[in-house]
């Protein structure tokens, strides 16, 4: 089944522009000079393992992610997200990180396994994004390595019934730079997804150059699909910030009606 998309949305408000500019700002703010409340803001940190380096066209994606979150929602976000190493104690500073790559990755070191294990044990959420899902090497490698971190957890598919798909937008299927499978996969711990696997190159769909152009084509849906990818990214962020809020009883009946198209 092919996902249908609506046309691209044109937004050019002052806030969006400022946020976008902010997201692209090259001046990195020091961690201790933010506005009050920003310490608890969403921060899509990129997880670095082994000798990997964070470079390439996707490096703009985290800032875009933050910018889109701030434009579309009330959530605060770090405009200049950084990176964090898996064996760095700073991994435990915040409860979210994105691990993305293409191709196979070398085995995690014991220190990295230990760091990630503590991160997961404290309740952190890790998004694992395969930048080359067509190949699937990273997807397999990351599952292999994370099995060492959480031996008791095997990923299972999660779809529209899961809170990740309704934490802000009502999303019927997952998409990224590629259409990929309709569902994400996740390791569920304590009833909530803690490791979310995307075989859609979500980061690639978010990437945007300094000129505002998108360096990576989104296939097969084009810009409408990119919009859906942005919505999925926003939902992941809102899930990280609100946990299972949208699973509350008070929302349930409302969302059921909306899912079924009732007024």
């Amino acid at each position: 089944m092919k996902q249908s998309f609506r046309g691209p949305l044109q937004v050019s408000t002052r806030r969006r522009a400022l946020a976008t500019l902010g997201g692209l700002a090259l001046v990195a703010a020091t961690p201790r000079a933010r506005a009050f409340g920003e310490e608890g803001a969403f921060n899509p940190r990129v997880l670095i393992t082994g000798n990997a380096r964070w470079e390439g066209v996707r490096t703009s994606a985290p800032a875009r992610w933050s910018a889109e979150l701030m434009i579309r929602t009330s959530a605060p976000a770090r405009q200049t997200p950084g990176t964090v190493r898996a064996d760095d104690p700073l991994l435990l500073a915040e409860p979210f990180a994105v691990w993305g790559a293409e191709g196979d990755v070398p085995p995690l070191t014991d220190r990295e396994v230990s760091g990630l294990r503590r991160f997961i044990a404290l309740g952190g959420v890790l998004l694992v994004d395969d930048f080359a899902p067509e190949d699937g090497s990273f997807g397999r490698a990351s599952r292999r390595e994370l099995q060492r971190v959480v031996p008791e957890g095997s990923p299972i598919p999660i779809g529209p019934e899961n809170v990740v798909f309704k934490s802000f937008y009502l999303i019927r299927r997952a998409v990224g730079r590629v259409e990929g499978p309709p569902k994400l996969q996740a390791v569920i711990r304590g009833g909530v997804p803690q490791i979310i696997y995307s075989a859609h190159d979500l980061t690639g769909a978010l990437a945007r150059g300094a000129s505002g152009t998108h360096p990576l084509q989104v296939t097969p849906g084009g810009e409408p699909q990119r919009e859906m990818a942005v919505r999925l990214a926003v939902n992941v962020a809102m899930y990280v910030l609100c946990s299972t809020y949208k699973d509350d009883v008070v929302h349930e009946s409302f969302l059921k009606r909306r899912h079924s198209g009732e007024p």
Binding site: V11, R72, T73, S74, D248
Partner: peptide, 24 residues
């Protein structure tokens, strides 16, 4: 617990119709 979080402000540009939102 009964929770209500403000997920969008009056300025938020959700870029979607209300049917596409999980907001109450």
């Amino acid at each position: 617990v009964v929770a209500f979080f403000i997920l969008r402000t009056h300025d938020s540009q959700v870029q979607a119709s209300s049917d596409e939102l999980a907001l109450i």
